[in-house]
Design a protein around this nucleic acid. Structure first.
Lengths: 127, 127, 127, 127
DNA sequence: GTGGTCTAGACCACG
DNA sequence: GTGGTCTAGACCACT
């Protein structure tokens, strides 16, 4: 099962696109094997507090991208092999971190301050 | 002088929000200064290849935040006082860091690994 | 039930304002009743041959005046209480009369002549 | 000289269109003879508190309609003969009054109340 | 030239 | 189906 406990919407961007991104991240984070089942639409709908139609739209796009496939109607299955998943995960880890570091540098914050801030946010209960 | 030289569109997110973000980052990183003249709606729209109305929307929001002043027929100016600059900077610092922390958590990486990765990227020569 | 049967466009004035006026007159003359269902944006836009966005703008203004309630996904309803109805009626009475008086004055007609003309028209059989 | 002392803008409608209407009414109200001079652009601009460009636009349209003609560049002259002017005046008087009477009737006000209201507004200092 | 508004069309999210 | 938003294009009023 993909972990979505830290899902957080960015304001303004279309929700269904964010869900696509987070499903991709979810897939990358866990080593789901090819053919394994993806979370059900209504489970995600309840978990994220989003309308089922919106989830459906995200899944539909992922199917068109060839990342998921709906074999038995309602259920979807992962299509990418594990090697690809691992590569995507690595890319996301490095890309995201570079982005954060660049933003921090641009905002003229010292490394120590930045890491302290990140430490606080990481361990905070509420985001 | 605002250049918009390194402005890059992100697909999916509303354009006007991206413009707001760009200007705010410029202000927070002291690249854009108080009292500086803002490019006209038409000029910026031509430069970015979007409709003047989209720029208008961004500017209007900035005006409501007290970051920009406009008078019909006259030019527009950025007017962020030091307090506002600090507020924006704080918002960006926290927002960016939250985003990174969430991404790392969702990618199922431990805090130590994430910080180690960030440390390496931070101290690397070029971005 | 709002019919928009006798709605006629006036050239030059913004369409959305004309729609607002039409609905307000309906409310003030008790043709439209409290709690009545408002036509959907799309339905009315098709009926009047304008863009749904124009109807949206009119409805949004009416909502800000407290004359209409909308909830995303659900139908919209007119919700003018008796006090609001009276206010709107008063506004229209005064506004219309001011307009007429100004027109008469500018046409260089004396008060007596103007009132005599109005008297004749008022008591005529049909409009 | 055309009388504009009672000019009043209606909210929302384009100013230049309203000026056109009021110039037409001004012409109809006075028995200006054909070829007589119309008020200067800057006089009207000052009188109405409107930008000269806007007055210019109204005059330009009137010239295209054939009601005014610019003979010596800046100055404009009336083109319609007096008989036509009188006819238009009569039409405006009756049309405006019918409109007002209909509005009052629709708003369920008695003739006496309506006339009393008009009387008050007619004699009021401020509109 | 400047800023601002009105209408249109396509899309998003919800019931 | 519903209401709401984003982008675009044309126009208005003012310096």
């Amino acid at each position: 099962m993909i972990s979505f406990e830290d899902f957080m919407f960015v304001d303004g961007c279309p929700i269904y696109l964010q869900i696509i991104q987070y499903i991709k991240r979810g897939i990358a984070s866990e080593t789901i094997h090819n053919g394994e089942e993806a979370p059900s639409r209504r489970a995600l709908s309840a978990l994220l507090g989003v309308n089922p139609n919106t989830i459906q739209k995200a899944y539909h796009n992922l199917e068109e991208e060839g990342i998921l496939t709906s074999r038995s109607g309602a259920k979807s299955y992962l299509c990418a092999d594990q090697k690809t998943v691992e590569r995507i995960r690595r890319e996301l880890l490095i890309g995201d971190t570079k982005e954060w570091v660049n933003a921090m540098k641009q905002l003229n914050i010292s490394k120590e301050e930045a890491f302290s801030l990140a430490e606080n946010i990481w361990t905070a209960k509420e985001l």
